[in-house]
Simulated assay, not measured.
Amino acid sequence: MADEIVVGVDGSAAALDAVRWAAEAVRRKVALRLVHATDITSGLDGGLPMPQSFFDELDRAGQEFLADAVRLTGEVPVSTETPFAPAVALLLERSRTARMLALGSSGRSGLTGMLAGSTAVSVAAHASCPVAVVRGRPATGGPVVVGVDGSPTSEEALSVAFDEAAWRAVPLIAVHAWSDAKVALPAPDPGWAEVERDQLRLLAERLAGRRERYPDVRVERVVVRDRPRDELLARSRDAQLVVVGSRGRGGFRGLLLGSTSQALIHQAECPVLVVRPR
């Protein structure tokens, strides 16, 4: 695995936000690579051959997008590439060796009114490495928040969240939400206090080994009787990063992105890091 963060650049404001976020992240001594993919199939009409000037113009535009992005990275060493390839396919290929991908929440080709672009959703669903979807306010201050539900992807997300909190020197809030109910939940019954104690104990057990490896990370354990998506979206208002597994215990088997991760990609108020098992 190459120790680099790969950022997708398409000339949009959202992509430039992702470049700024990644340029800050690479101060952890990893490399930064900016990629612009030019999908030539979108410009072909009926399979007719296109003049070389058409390809030259596409390449020139891509180089300009990357030049604008490089100017935002300051003194961070950066490499660039502008291949002729579909964006999703290229990013998924780079995800096989990257430490992380970073994408803007929407791109130049997105439809007006969409909360997140199709590229961000597709890449988060299929990538081989964690995918940061950079959205909301600038990621400064606040804790790292991670959703924990005991699923394999949740365990992967927990490991990544500890690493992020340690590098950023901020607290980690580990959230376990008790219900995936689609309707409003009734007020807690008298037995809720006992359930909460049991869930807090189980959450502490999941955190124990990682806390030994990250002794400087201050951890807050939170158990709530709420839907995971609602609790994590609420906490994104004050967090600098929310980390979540691509798919948890709930939902239909075979889905690559669960409802919680999809909700965060579309609506979170800070950057979201979606973690899939490699």
Rank of each mutant, 00 (worst) to 15 (best):
R96D: 05
F84G: 04
P143F: 01
I5Y: 01
R137V: 12
G136K: 02
V9S: 12
A127M: 04
L273M: 11
S95V: 13
G142F: 15
A132W: 00
V9H: 04
G258Q: 00
R253K: 14
L256T: 10
P49N: 08
A116S: 11
D226I: 01
D163M: 11
E155V: 11
E196V: 10
A23S: 14
V242M: 04
E81N: 14
L232N: 00
L34P: 10
A89W: 00
L44Y: 11
E57T: 11
S122P: 06
L32Q: 04
I265G: 02
G107K: 05
A268K: 01
Q52G: 14
R247Y: 00
G8H: 05
G8S: 12
V195W: 07
M50E: 10
D45K: 15
W167Y: 12
E196M: 07
S109Q: 04
P86N: 09
A166D: 13
R71A: 14
P49V: 14
G47T: 09
T73I: 13
A2L: 12
E164C: 14
E231C: 07
S179C: 08
W192N: 09
W178P: 02
V243P: 05
D180S: 15
E212Q: 15
L103P: 06
A14F: 03
L34G: 13
H126Q: 14
A139C: 13
A234G: 15
A116N: 07
R201T: 08
K182L: 11
C270K: 02
L232A: 02
A61W: 02
D45P: 08
S122G: 06
A161C: 08
D45N: 13
P83Q: 07
D180M: 06
V223N: 00
G104V: 10
R227E: 12
R211D: 03
V123C: 04
I173V: 14
D180L: 04
E269D: 13
G110A: 15
V145D: 01
A177Y: 01
S259K: 02
V121L: 13
